[in-house]
């Protein structure tokens, strides 16, 4: 991919992000931060490349350390998000009165 294609993806993704994030209900802003934390650890892709490559031992160990840190974040981030979202389950035993505008 040349620089311009990459830049296009980036700019369009910023717009997608803008609209998607505004549609997130404020009640879920904490889970939003937790899950963005988890997905930004997709940086693990770079860490895996560094950690797997032969050639520079220093780069390899730094890569492996980055893999470890990103894994803490991925597993921790998704797990804590799941834990929070489970709390927002509809409570069946005590039906809440319906309210307009929600």
């Amino acid at each position: 991919m040349d620089f311009i294609s990459i830049l296009s993806i980036f700019v369009l993704a910023c717009f997608v992000g803008y609209y998607v994030v505004w549609s997130v209900t404020p009640a879920l802003h904490t889970p939003l931060m937790a899950v963005t934390n988890a997905i930004s650890s997709v940086i693990i892709v770079g860490a895996l490349i560094a950690g797997a490559a032969a050639g520079s031992p220093a780069a390899k160990w730094l890569g492996l350390l980055a893999v470890l840190l990103a894994s803490v974040n991925i597993f921790g981030g998704f797990a804590v998000t799941a834990r929070m979202l489970a709390m927002y389950r509809k409570k069946e035993r005590r039906p809440a009165p319906t309210r307009e505008g929600r």
């Binding site: 990459i6 993704a13 963005t36 930004s40 997709v42």
Partner: peptide, 12 residues
């Protein structure tokens, strides 16, 4: 994947 995620998280 990294660029899309970065843009999403950055805007968020």
């Amino acid at each position: 994947a990294m660029i899309i995620t970065g843009a999403l998280v950055g805007s968020s």
